[in-house]
């Protein structure tokens, strides 16, 4: 128990330039505190989220990944967040097949006005992953390498 509670997970968060990244900015402007375990990547849209990005994050040592985007119906690019939702659902299934708990991947909607909500989602995510413990995908088992040059190539080196 004690070991787990001392564990500080690392979470990679993917944000949309138009809503959730601005929500993070708003959380900053309002000085809303949340755990420092999250590190954000800005994309133009949650629809840009290549599933490879998520696998890459796990492969490089992330214990959890958060995908954030505009609320359904409020996408800056009309409907691309729905595509992110599809990928998210598929990814959760794929992760389970790879031995990763589905809870390590989380999708949250946050509009540009929802700094408080985003901070809360992040806090909850960190606590969820803290309970799950470290993933150590980059240390345990197969070495997974995701290269820069070919997009969806997943090389599994035994």
């Amino acid at each position: 128990m004690t070991e787990k509670s001392n564990f500080e997970p690392t979470i990679i968060g993917f944000t949309c330039n138009w809503c959730s990244y601005r929500a993070a900015d708003l959380a900053g402007i309002a000085r809303i505190q949340y755990p420092a375990n999250i590190r954000l990547v800005r994309l133009m849209c949650s629809g840009r989220l290549d599933p490879t990005f998520v696998l890459k994050a796990f492969a490089e040592g992330a214990d959890g990944v958060m995908i954030t985007g505009c609320h359904p119906g409020e996408c800056h690019y009309l409907e691309q967040n729905y595509k992110a939702l599809r990928r998210y659902l598929l990814l959760r299934r794929t992760l389970v097949a790879m031995g990763i708990e589905a809870e390590r991947l989380h999708l949250a909607w946050a509009s540009a006005a929802e700094g408080i909500q985003l901070a809360r989602e992040i806090t909850e995510m960190v606590e969820r992953v803290r309970v799950l413990g470290p993933l150590n995908w980059h240390l345990n088992g197969d070495q997974v390498q995701i290269t820069h040059d070919a997009t969806a190539e997943l090389e599994v080196v035994a």
């Binding site: 629809g47 840009r48 994050a57 992330a62």
Partner: peptide
């Protein structure tokens, strides 16, 4: 928006400012 880049199975769609290389390196 980049949705097509993320979806192309052949990696044939490329994007400026948010290329796969850039995002993967950022991670």
């Amino acid at each position: 928006c980049g949705t097509c880049i993320a979806a192309c199975p052949a990696g044939a769609v490329i994007g400026t400012s948010y290329s796969n290389e850039q995002v993967l390196a950022q991670i």
